[in-house]
Amino acid sequence: MLGRTAGGLFWMFRYLERSENTARLIEAGFRIALTRSAAAEDEWSSIVTVTGSREAYLARQDTFSGAQVVNFLLREKQNPSSVISVIEAARNNARMVRTALTREVWEAVNETWILFRDLLARPINERDLPQVLATIRQQGALVRGALHGTMLRNDIYDFARLGTFLERADNTARILNVKYYVLLPSVSYVGTSLDNVQWETILRSVSAYRSYRWLYGGQINARSIADFLLLDLSMPRSLAFCYEKIYRNLNYLADDYGFRNNCHDQAMTIRERLAGHTIDTILDSGLHEFVEEFIRDNNQLGREIETNYRFIG
């Protein structure tokens, strides 16, 4: 496979994952705004921070009102991480690697782009937002379904999956990075109500509100939320889960190609670090530091994969 093609696949799936993550964050913010309006502005502000576009946002807006944030994150073309920009980038990558995709995957991505372009052509008002977000989620599922159902399990698939899980791990880690303080076992939060707004946002922004309750029943507390997002191997957006997948996909590549690269060692190190910790040891040694280090290493791994598999010349 061409190195550029591998890179195109990797980035195509990173962008697709990103568009879903952004939609999920907006969904969480919207939910908070509707149910606890006093906390809304702070939530919107931290959501913008999670997407890494705080500076770009503040360059055009002074306040974090729902409508402004939603439009900035969904349809602002000047914002490179808005859903519309990201889908455009995903589709451009898909066009570039079209020969590596099945017709089903290509059409799902192309259709998604056509749909979003129309859907996001005008400002989104509150009334339409749930439908718009639902469509973004559905389209994500459609592309994923086409990928699972029609693609050969070969290096093409491996690079697509690597992109997905690196991006997902980054997204979960960013949420933790912005919200880490509410998960600290500090005095002020001990014994706070189950209705903690912050906790709910965190769980909703990784689509895990229900699965968490299901798993932990009445035991809702900061420690178990942190455990769930960092180390739970059954939680598809946890860091540990993502690294199981990354590690496995890199190994498939190594078996297929008959050689290993630096990226294999790096991925193994990160995976072992996650496996070697319990939530208590992480909290003891500092959640924030742990997450920051993870984000750095995760980015570094992305760059290493890019070099090892010759994405660029």
């Binding site: 496979m1 061409l2 190195g3 550029r4 591998a6 290096d155 690079f159 190609y257 050689f259 598999y309 010759r310 660029i312 010349g313």
Partner: peptide, 17 residues
């Protein structure tokens, strides 16, 4: 950008070399 002259041949940069 995928192509380069390598050992007297025109070659494409793949994930394996």
């Amino acid at each position: 950008s995928d192509l380069k002259v390598v050992d007297g041949r025109v070659a494409m940069r793949t994930t394996r070399g």
